[in-house]
């Protein structure tokens, strides 16, 4: 178990280092996702399976997809490479190797855990849920309000105002609008 922790930690550190030093934003995102997967393995070994699942679903799933959407919308980071250039092995070989290491980790854990009794150290999702919705229920409601504020704020900030290209066109539009009102 300790070896698995060290391997996953090493994978996380290497992929994070590659993520923050990369030039292409999409490639860095790929490394960041590998880093999140490795951290999720660490959480699983630490006896927090629920958090490990949440890490993958929310961080590697939702948040990283948001990043990818924005990078694609802005169309930066590619710097006019052709698609055949993206598919070169050197683009995906390192993240793949790191992910395969994690996969071997995972398979090993599954194989050994089948024979091994899980000790009492594991904190089950049931305990987390009970604590979350009894002691910290106020925090849950505040988190809900925060998310609502986040939705409204993101919508308001991200909205693009209609631009009038020329002032004569603007005048025409106003006239048309006033005509329509009449």
């Amino acid at each position: 178990m300790n070896t698995i922790f060290y391997i996953a930690a090493a994978v996380a550190l290497v992929s994070t280092g590659l993520a923050i030093s990369g030039r292409n934003a999409i490639h860095s995102l790929l490394y960041l996702i590998v880093s999140l997967l490795a951290v999720s393995v660490v959480f699983y070994i630490l006896g927090a399976p629920f958090i490990a699942a949440l890490e993958i679903i929310i961080y590697a799933g939702a948040v990283m997809v948001l990043f990818i959407f924005v990078i694609m919308m802005l169309n930066v980071g590619m710097e006019r490479e052709s698609e055949s250039n993206w598919l070169k092995p050197r683009m995906w070989i390192v993240p793949s190797v790191l992910t395969v290491i994690l996969l071997i980790d995972f398979l090993y854990v599954l194989k050994t855990m089948a024979h091994e009794e899980i000790s009492g150290q594991v904190i089950s999702p049931k305990q987390v849920g009970l604590s979350l919705f009894s002691t910290y229920v106020l925090g849950v409601e505040i988190a809900g309000m925060l998310l609502l504020a986040g939705i409204v704020g993101a919508y308001h900030i991200g909205r693009q105002k209609k631009k009038v290209i020329h002032r004569f066109m603007k005048k025409e539009e106003i006239i048309k609008e006033s005509d329509a009102e009449k």
Binding site: I51, L54, S131, L132, Y136, L147, G150
Partner: peptide
Amino acid sequence: QVMFIFMLAVTATEVSVAL
């Protein structure tokens, strides 16, 4: 783990507004 879930909510909000 409860605190981590709260941090997850804060992070999601922060990322959407920042993007």
